[in-house]
Design a protein around this nucleic acid. Sequence first.
DNA 1: GTACGGCCCTGTTAGC
DNA 2: TGCTAACAGGGCCGTA
Length: 280
Amino acid sequence: MPEMPEVETIRRQLVDQLVGATILEAGSHPSAKFVPAVEAIDMRIERLGRRGKFLLVEVVPTPDPHSDSDDRPSASELVIHLGMTGKLSLDPDPDLNDPYLRAWWRLDDGRILRFDDVRRFGRIRLVARGDYSSIPTLANAGPEPFDPELTAEVFWQRLKTSRRKLKTQLLSQRPVAGVGNIYADEALWLAEINPKITRLGLVRAERLLDAIRIVLEQGVNNGGTTLRDYRDAEGGIGANQLQLAAYGRSGEPCLRCNSVLRSAMLDARTTVWCPRCQER
DNA sequence: GTACGGCCCTGTTAGC
DNA sequence: TGCTAACAGGGCCGTA
């Protein structure tokens, strides 16, 4: 389940290989989630960015040799969300009949950028650069976690706009972008804050923001968290699953106080916390 | 604005 | 051994 550290790992692995390449051909699974992949044919990749869990592939149409117009073509963005089981990789000779291949783009050097996604929770859109109005989560996403303008005060103010449960807010991407179920549980555990509270003061907000940055940075440094499906762009697995203190450890002792970790469904997501050091 | 349920998806695992 | 049900969950939508 790729969250910010996993998507960033993939972005870093692909950026130098993709920027400057032109997409000559593309194909997709018939689902509307993936069909927009083919809209990027005859476009050159200018940038590979990321917002939260979304990969942003900035593309521009290749110049028409028969046109004498000097107008600079407008840029678009191929917005890719990996969902639960999405994988992006470069393959020199893929089997296009692979049952889990959902989209592919043939580049001008012959290689193919492939998007595999067993459970089809991923999605692809082509939008005008910066226009995310058709992607609500992206349009409403909060600042990047390491954006220096995201101060504790800003984070606190963003949390104060809602009275939903704290973890629900984190998963909404609105207070800060890129946090999913795993890193939310880890950050709340590290900050010693109960996931179900509906309001918190500036001091605890600051502690939570610090914890989010620590667990995300650790995730990036470890190349992501591989529980089952996640693979990076080179097919490798992450190492962060060895560092988890809360996620997936329900029933096991808290690494801080030795109490038995609890779990419950919150927003249809499994949530694990320590009933003692994350007391409400 | 919020809570909640349901949908999309399929491999894995537990239980019988 | 083989079958069935439960489970995993990000984003989005409809309803109350």
